[in-house]
């Protein structure tokens, strides 16, 4: 199959890759661009592990074709930190042990980033609802809620 040239803004930088039209964004990120931080958990849009931001919208990258991202912005877990300085969401996940095996973590971080961009001061039910697309098999979720609430508070504080 003839490959398609895709140009996009990836984690704030211009990037390009060649994609077969059938390849998902998830495959393009992992196999074509070697950005392996985004994980495949189910491959059918049900677990949220492969969540990325597409022009600021939270999507499961296993349900987006790579060629669809031409000219768009894609943000992945690799772009959250500024160099070696972790984002407050990342710090909160570490400090509150909101991770165990780590496979669902990149998806949760992207979903949290998206949540806090839409709603900087979410209630606990709002957090639960927004993150309902993301499955975790290890933690039992409770520490993830705490981490998101703490991250939100810290980001609010530093924004003031």
């Amino acid at each position: 199959m003839k490959k398609v040239h895709v140009q996009l803004t990836l984690n704030g930088e211009p990037a390009e890759f060649l994609a077969e039209p059938r390849q998902t964004l998830l495959e393009c990120l992992r196999d074509n661009l070697n950005l392996t931080g985004t994980k495949e958990g189910c491959g059918d849009g049900n677990c949220g592990s492969c969540s990325v931001l597409l022009d600021g919208q939270l999507v499961t990258s296993c349900l987006v074709l790579g060629v669809e991202t031409d000219g768009l912005r894609v943000d992945t877990v690799e772009g959250i930190a500024k160099g070696s300085t972790l984002h407050p969401i990342q710090k909160a996940f570490i400090d509150n042990a909101a991770l165990q095996c780590g496979i669902c973590t990149p998806g949760f971080l992207m979903a949290t980033k998206s949540l806090l961009e839409h709603n900087p001061n979410p209630t606990e039910p709002e957090i639960r609802l927004w993150l309902a697309n993301n499955l975790c098999r290890c933690t039992g979720y409770d520490k993830i809620v705490r981490a998101v609430m703490i991250a939100a508070a810290e980001m609010q504080e530093s924004a003031q």
Binding site: I80, I94, L99
Partner: peptide, 19 residues
């Protein structure tokens, strides 16, 4: 301390077999 691989988990740097 936090989970030994925590930093790798949150930055995407922690490697699993298929990575």
């Amino acid at each position: 301390g936090p989970h030994e691989s925590a930093r790798g988990h949150v930055t995407g740097a922690a490697l699993y077999t298929d990575d």
